[in-house]
Design a protein around this nucleic acid. Structure first.
Lengths: 330, 330
DNA sequence: ATGAAAGCGCTAACAT
DNA sequence: ATGTTAGCGCTTTCAT
């Protein structure tokens, strides 16, 4: 590809003038400006990002660190990130870490040597060390779908309220004996969802049916086993609140395998509103996370941080959850 | 981060020696070599990729151009790409184009100015122009899940045989009246799947039930409508072959909505073996594409092309399809 | 085998 | 307002 000197020669100006036209910082006389633009166009010139970055210019590249693309909810969020990145001329490097600290470290290293402008983390487990280091070195860092502390920028859902709404919706349908299939309480968002569930129950004057509450469930298969066990123990239940759609999937399978019907015998409500929720049988009533929008918002803020002259004060954007009513609740 | 001169100073050698140790091309006396390595370690030094690329060195970055991450099958393939990329020290830039030529062009431009080492395309529609241009400029280009022509490297499935196997499996279960819900025949893979279906039928001495064959279907909703129409027309059918899992999803919903059972009344076989296929009700019998492995193979070959001294002769790797038997076929 | 020096393509400080 | 020049961090001749 043509370099800046060829453009300069063609436009009959100096390379610096070409650079100035591109940067838009200094004024260039209109006539020359036009000649430069024409030359750029004719030669299909694009500045070499490596050379620019060597001068301390942004690379317009961000690193998106996630546990695994192969997941029910992340693709929607990724797409949100990607779309706003593209609209700002940024590229995104995708990094799957499987929540593995070593892979995460590998990526941070490679990305740093690639002079990435900023990082976006969507890991569920708290590995604050890497993130804190990055922040200390002055890298813009955003957290998406998770939060760390008040010192870190994040875009998250109001999990408490989401779970509160879900439970209340079940209650409003006359369902009072609500089992809970929840993730690990060590993960903040599951702890919050648990709290929302308890609050709603408490307000309704109901107590938590401990025999039908299980935590630490990861994925559909574990959820299947947990729900089966509860059902086999003849615990009296008329609904399950699964705190993620993949757990809901397992719970639904368990109910059906026992010859019970949804929502006839037992209602199910999920959490996430993954793309597949409406494809299930019956279509799953669930708490929607605006995943695409949250990804977009996180990327937007990251880019603002990157382009800001001085450090932006940390801010946690909390998105509202919303119950999406379909057919899995009576 | 520390630069090469700091490392040199600490190891008491010249920057060139440090560079030589890193490059591994020239011999460096063992003692100095050890000192350099120690200094690199102590300072946590990583060479600046921008500076290297300015010298014509690989950036170890590849561009992965896909229609949309938010898709049933792509995440598995992406993961395959990513894993082998990481194992070779490469990073991957993810680009969603929605099959939109303009977005594709945007990405090609930005990626080129970022001095990417090579491209991986997973677009379904044939936009050969961009790809041909890239090849002409000498960029290594791989095609994944699609193919262009004999001049292009590609990793694809043996679609013909996959459809042939699917149809034969149905036949082996005593199902003779097999409807087909297919994608656009303009897309090569759907044309091939159609051919496999016809061959199996022909060999069995059966003719294609034209009233139960529909092409040009894109996505679950269109499949739902098509299957509903066929069923409502009282076409005598005992199975549907849906040529993608998302189409199978729509077909299943249509069958159930009409009060029919799967596989009791009508059997369904899909294509892809998307991650969700086993979560459906009933779990979907389908033709597996080894998506992860294909992604991995494509990335592997792309990296080989990048690191080869001279151009590699084009090669099309065709992966075998396999019927995964679950419960949606009688 | 190793160091000195040039230069990859660009931007910004400096000079005019 | 624009051109000249130095230098970002690195690799690679070239010289020793």
């Amino acid at each position: 590809m043509a370099d800046i000197r060829e453009v300069a020669k063609r436009a009959n100006v100096s390379p610096s003038t070409v650079s100035r036209v591109l940067g838009g910082t200094t004024r260039v006389v209109e006539e020359k400006r036009a000649r430069v633009l024409a030359a750029i166009d004719e030669l299909d010139y694009r500045p070499n990002v490596s050379a620019q970055s060597l001068k301390g210019i942004r690379t317009r590249t961000i690193g998106l660190v996630i546990p695994n693309v192969r997941n029910l909810v992340l693709p929607a969020a990724i797409r949100g990130v990607e779309d706003v990145a593209r609209n700002h001329g940024y590229a995104v490097v995708l990094c799957n870490t499987d929540e593995d600290s070593e892979k995460e470290q590998f990526y941070i290293k490679t990305l740093k040597s690639r002079l990435i402008d900023g990082f976006l983390f969507t890991t569920a487990k708290i590995n604050s060390h890497n993130i804190k280091d990055l922040q200390a070195e002055g890298f813009p860092v955003m957290l998406l779908l998770r939060e760390l502390d008040e010192q870190s920028h994040a875009v998250v859902l109001d999990h408490y309220n989401g779970a509160y709404q879900a439970t209340n919706y079940l209650l409003s349908r006359g369902l009072k004996k609500i089992g809970l299939v929840n993730g690990s309480l060590d993960i903040k968002l599951y702890d919050e969802r648990y709290a929302g569930y308890r609050s709603a129950l408490k307000e309704a004057g109901l107590k938590v049916p401990d025999e039908a509450v299980v935590h630490g469930i990861d994925g559909g298969i574990e959820a299947y086993r947990a729900a089966t066990r509860i059902l086999l123990n003849r615990v009296d239940i008329d609904a399950f609140f699964a705190t993620s759609d993949d757990k809901a999937l397992g719970v639904m399978r368990a109910i059906k395998d026992l010859g019970l019907s949804i929502p006839g015998d037992i209602s199910v409500i999920g959490f996430d509103n993954a793309d597949i929720a409406l494809l299930l049988d019956p279509p799953l009533t669930t708490v929607a996370q605006p995943l695409y929008e949250m990804g977009a918002a996180a990327c937007q803020q990251l880019i603002e941080m990157i382009e800001a002259k001085q450090p932006v004060t940390p801010q946690i954007q909390r998105f509202p959850a919303e119950v999406v009513i379909r057919n899995s609740v009576k």
